[in-house]
Design a protein around this nucleic acid. Sequence first.
RNA 1: GGACGAGUGGCGGAGCGGUUGAACGCGGCGGUCUUGAAAACCGCAGAUGCCGAAAGGCAUUCGUAGGUUCGAAUCCUACCUCGUCCGCCA
Length: 431
Amino acid sequence: MLDIGLIRKESEAVRQRLLTRGMGAADGLDKVLEVDEERRRLLGEVEKLKAERNAISKEVGVRKAKKESADDLLAGMKEKSDRIAELDKQAAEVEAKQEGLLLSIPNLPWEGCPKGSTAAENPVVSTWGEPKKFDFKPKDHVALGEALGILDFAASAKVSGSGFAVYRGEGARLERSLISWMLNLHSGEHGYTEVSPPFLVRESSMVGTGQLPKFREDLYAVEGGELFLVPTAEVPVTNLHRDEILTEGDLPKKYAAYTPCFRREAGSAGKETRGLGRMHQFDKVELVWIEHPDRSMKALEELCQHAESVLRKLGLHYRKIELCTGDIGFGAARCYDLEVWAPGMGQFLEVSSCSNFMDFQARRMGLRFKGADGKNRPCHTLNGSGTALARLFIALVETYQTQEGGVTIPETLRSIFGSDRIGKELSKPKP
RNA sequence: GGACGAGUGGCGGAGCGGUUGAACGCGGCGGUCUUGAAAACCGCAGAUGCCGAAAGGCAUUCGUAGGUUCGAAUCCUACCUCGUCCGCCA
């Protein structure tokens, strides 16, 4: 949520910055200014009346205490109160309207964001490793996984429909191992506190991180309740500190969390839907920072390094791109994506999105810190996948497949996985 | 799911419908004292919004939303959350 004070003071600059996102991104700005003016007008009027009423009521109390009559003061007070009630109602309506408008305006892209209008204009920041070379034609993970019996799409379709997967045997074990290994890495080496949050959250949490009110159609809602399935651990974890005033010494807060992620993926049917590429449910280890505004851009670099370290340790070829103003997400001010190479599919797959939301989410959720000057200011929030599963699984099995149709397990995963390969000639680790 | 009880400032905990944003204690901040610290003593201090260049003023806020009243932390209703007991259960 943008600061209404900023919108008021620098409306033209705000408009120009929003427009770098594309046509329509500044819609609602004029309306919100108009509503804000009306709100302040009403507030001025009603607060003046309330001040009068308070003064008179206080005097009534004094007179009654002295057993004196206050009838002269009470005359006309009912009308005054009715007028106040009427104006209060109007003010509440206008405030709700303003809130609704503000919640639907996207964040300002950071001033240093590359300008552009589509994903095609996202610059590649860096590339790590090389595409794996094969002496044979590499299979994609669907062919490979089904032949090995570690993926079963027929079963998941039967149980839940398209967009789901059943991992079996060594496949399920690999998935679980990756989650544990990543959590160990981030909590053990990168200083994150591991948390295991609820997978269903209330509406206010979704509003806090920005999924609602605008993107309801992307979410799974639980029927008959007001709970939603989390689309990312960002939601429950960032909201851990909603409505809190932290001290500067509390910052940064760094959390790592595993959750499954549930997304309707409405409108993307038929697009990249083969195999594990785009699922209604996938696993993810998420990194969340709550940081001091002065340090959040540095924090974004660090957070992204932590996500990158996952891919490096696994020896997976990837590239890092920075999202341009036209492609950046609703709440993000700056964002890097990490895309890992899947040799069987012959494409890069997004496995991490590392964003600095600056004060956008913090304003929505009332997350502040008390600065050295004693003033309360919104914190900055960041998050990034560290990393998303399913696609990491794809890259891993496709990269490490063998000519015989098995999969070699990278050195770093072997002890937690309990073996050095999947497939024929499965061997136990040497004692 | 059923019954009962409770929700007050960072924490604990008072609070007759009227000069209560709220006693008191702890914690916090600033000072006095001290070589320094502790103790003791004195003082300051919630949050949000509106107006204002500022100083400051005003409004709102005692789980949430309504209601009664000239006036609500205090009375009424609903909801939420927590606790206890019962039932069910991984």
